[in-house]
Design a binder for these strands. Sequence first.
DNA 1: GCATATGATTCCGA
DNA 2: TCGGAATCATATGC
Length: 396
Amino acid sequence: MLQQQPITGNGPNPSRGLGLNAHPGMHSLNPIHPQHRPDGEPGLDGTENGHENRRDIGDILQQIMTITDQSLDEAQAKKHALNCHRMKPALFSVLCEIKEKTGLSMRNAQEEEPQDPQLVRLDNMLLAEGVAGPEKGGGAAAAVSAATSSGSMSPDSSLEHSDYKQKLSQIRTIYHTELEKYEQACSEFTTHVMNLLREQSRTRPVSPREIERMVAIIHRKFSSIQTQLKQSTCEAVMILRSRFLDARRKRRNFSKQATEVLNEYFYSHLSNPYPSEEAKEELAKQCSITVSQVSNWFGNKRIRYKKNIGKFQEEANLYAMKTAMGATQREGSPHTPNSTGSGSFSLSGSADLFLGVPPVNGEQPGYHMGGQTNGNWQEQNTPPSPPGSEHSDNSD
DNA sequence: GCATATGATTCCGA
DNA sequence: TCGGAATCATATGC
């Protein structure tokens, strides 16, 4: 820094000459040197008035340098005097030039800042999670559907969905509120600083580029705060998501009604317990579970039934009886809902049972009663013929 | 706490 | 891609 010497007065200090050499930065004042004046005009330090002008400049600089040591009133008065000084415009332009040069070099060092990859990642994630960006009905819903479709987890609960959506929505709200606050604060602070600089530009050279640079610095600072906000938001979403997925990963038994519907279908199609895609969809709807859960259930059921037919015989009888009773009731009143209680259970695959297909050998169609053969699928150990060719194997 | 039931997952073959 | 089989992980009943 400048080694400031004690200053005894405001006027030109003879002991310091013109003061130009006393300041290291004054080397940059070349533009006012005669050999740098292209017009050759006897300028600021030309031969005629040069000496006097130099004294003037030295005088102004001296005053500038001592201005901070003075009281506010004194300083204001001095400031006014400086502003009115006849040399002020010339000195001002010189300072502007210096600032422009130093500003350029500073800019070169600061510009071309690449976008922070971490910020990009955070932005992308927030966008993908539906936290940032426009609120599409998607946002949370999309995340939920993505979560449910990515794995075959038990998405049975719209309750969990709404819970997840609600929490995500909360995060989203907080995020946007905070973001808005930061943006507002940033904008206010920027305006404030710009006003200050504009105010200062009346007494010292402040180029528009300098203001731009200052604004950029402020924006960078606020953007780092925003990054932190985005980071915490991402963490919150990840925690919520992991909790949500963990909760969904937990196995839950199907409702009694769902199990009944599935069992009814299974035992009424024991000869060929392979529901078609449509049947699976219908069953899924009936049980409020997914098609893949229906598939899982039938897969498990077939295996476990085959492994231990004896154990399931009782269950089979039970469902046979139930269905028989249901069928009897339906005979009396054709529109009476079946045992599932829905009244709309009209699966194509279950038509032989529920739509009154004549039973083979006088028994309930498709049922294994005690001592009966178990049909082909258990013995063949291979998937049976596809639905459509199944109507011939009702002999179980 | 243990045995059993049950839904989900994974691997493999057709 | 579907289904069988084995297995895992959790729920449930005692």
